[in-house]
Amino acid sequence: MERKDFETWLDNISVTFLSLTDLQKNETLDHLISLSGAVQLRHLSNNLETLLKRDFLKLLPLELSFYLLKWLDPQTLLTCCLVSKQWNKVISACTEVWQTACKNLGWQIDDSVQDALHWKKVYLKAILRMKQLEDHEAFETSSLIGHSARVYALYYKDGLLCTVFSVDYNDELDILVSGSADFTVKVWALSAGTCLNTLTGHTEWVTKVVLQKCKVKSLLHSPGDYILLSADKYEIKIWPIGREINCKCLKTLSVSEDRSICLQPRLHFDGKYIVCSSALGLYQWDFASYDILRVIKTPEIANLALLGFGDIFALLFDNRYLYIMDLRTESLISRWPLPEYRKSKRGSSFLAGEASWLNGLDGHNDTGLVFATSMPDHSIHLVLWKEHS
């Protein structure tokens, strides 16, 4: 057939083909394939591969590729990295994808770091640590042995573990504050070692004192003011404190006015929120208004005591286990068995270690001490983060 005649025939048959239904088109193609030889089938195979197996990550602009990748979950992305070197290169270069994946796991993100490969590595480390938490394998235990009598009180700050009772201090103010079983809070001059003031008003043992700089404004305080919190079995008292020594209680917080509900002997205050646990759950107060923001209940486990509270996680415990709660879902995501020990009523025989990870893991702050408690055999039982493998 001459070229001109062939082109005319091809135009006519194309018009007819386009007028067919999908089923008729399929039957036509099946018939043509059955009539084709090896040369035609090879030609068809090569063209189909080009049409149907286009590498969109290679063909699309990088910005569009990144936009599409954002819709995939991290596990799928990791699988896609195995497709080819090109796919691995493009996917690993998408900073926003891996930063978002880390954020969703509750990890702290420094947005100034735009190295995508760094965040992919951080995600891989994060997913391993979260898997260890879910499988209750993130910690290990150790003991400190050397006391000849039982240790009744522990204190931990800046990496130092000491045996003292209910104190906090501030070098800038040259002040140390202490709570006591005589229902008082004492303010001491650090450099001189003299008692500057005795704060009264509690009717139970003062089991916790916290000295912290305020971060919010209200009618009673301004950002930058130093605030002292003291807690007993039923109440939390808020005191202003600075270079002036004489001060009066600003506010008293409680869970129940009739004192029917006890507070657990632990207190969290970060300058914006106050958190304490009770038999009804975790209570979180807004420090600007003193209003209760939320009550987090754990119906499956009652009477959990608070060890630490952050933006992402809370560290809790009872007589049998150490628990980690994801505050975004208010669910317990991990637990670690504890040995039999006597939990002191004043809360001085147990404590949390480094707590920055409660605001989000970052791959570096999940090290060192998590929890410590004194034991009847005069030793100190430690729960530590396992080192990254």
Rank of each mutant, 00 (worst) to 15 (best):
A181Y: 08
V167K: 08
L128C: 12
G179H: 11
I91Y: 04
E63T: 00
V97W: 02
A288I: 06
T141R: 01
D362Y: 08
T367H: 12
T198E: 09
D158W: 08
C162M: 13
L211A: 06
A189I: 00
K248Y: 07
T252H: 02
I312T: 14
K25L: 09
S356R: 07
T252D: 11
Q24Y: 05
Y234S: 01
Y156K: 01
E137L: 13
E49S: 05
H31T: 13
L173N: 03
S178I: 02
I145V: 10
S36Y: 03
N88D: 14
K103I: 10
L263T: 00
G368Y: 02
G106P: 04
S36K: 09
G310P: 07
L190P: 01
N12F: 14
D182C: 04
T21R: 09
H202Q: 06
T16H: 07
C249V: 12
V177H: 11
I312W: 01
W336D: 07
I312M: 09
R259Q: 15
D286L: 06
F269D: 10
L196Q: 12
L69K: 01
A138C: 08
L23A: 15
S142W: 10
L384G: 03
I33H: 03
D362C: 13
C214D: 06
L280D: 09
F183T: 12
K345G: 15
F287C: 04
L18G: 15
S148D: 14
L23V: 12
V90A: 07
G224I: 03
P223I: 07
V83N: 02
R328Q: 14
A279W: 08
E300V: 02
E387F: 05
I227L: 10
H221E: 02
P376I: 09
F287N: 06
D135P: 00
L48N: 06
S143N: 13
L173I: 02
L48G: 06
K248G: 05
Q284I: 10
I238S: 02
N303Y: 11
D158E: 14
E235H: 09
S356T: 15
E2C: 05
T184G: 05
N246E: 11
L332N: 05
A279Y: 10
C94S: 14
N359K: 12
R54I: 12
S92D: 04
A302N: 08
L128A: 12
L20Y: 15
G106N: 05
C276Y: 13
L267K: 06
S256F: 00
L64G: 01
F6L: 15
S256K: 12
S36C: 12
K53S: 04
N104G: 11
F183N: 11
R54C: 02
A352G: 15
E134V: 08
W188I: 02
L128M: 10
Q264E: 08
L196T: 01
F269C: 13
S348M: 05
W87N: 10
T95E: 05
D311W: 03
T163K: 14
S218T: 01
D115P: 06
V15R: 07
T373R: 02
Y290K: 00
V206Q: 04
H388M: 09
Q212T: 12
A189G: 14
P299I: 00
G353P: 04
D5G: 05
H31L: 03
K343D: 10
Q264K: 13
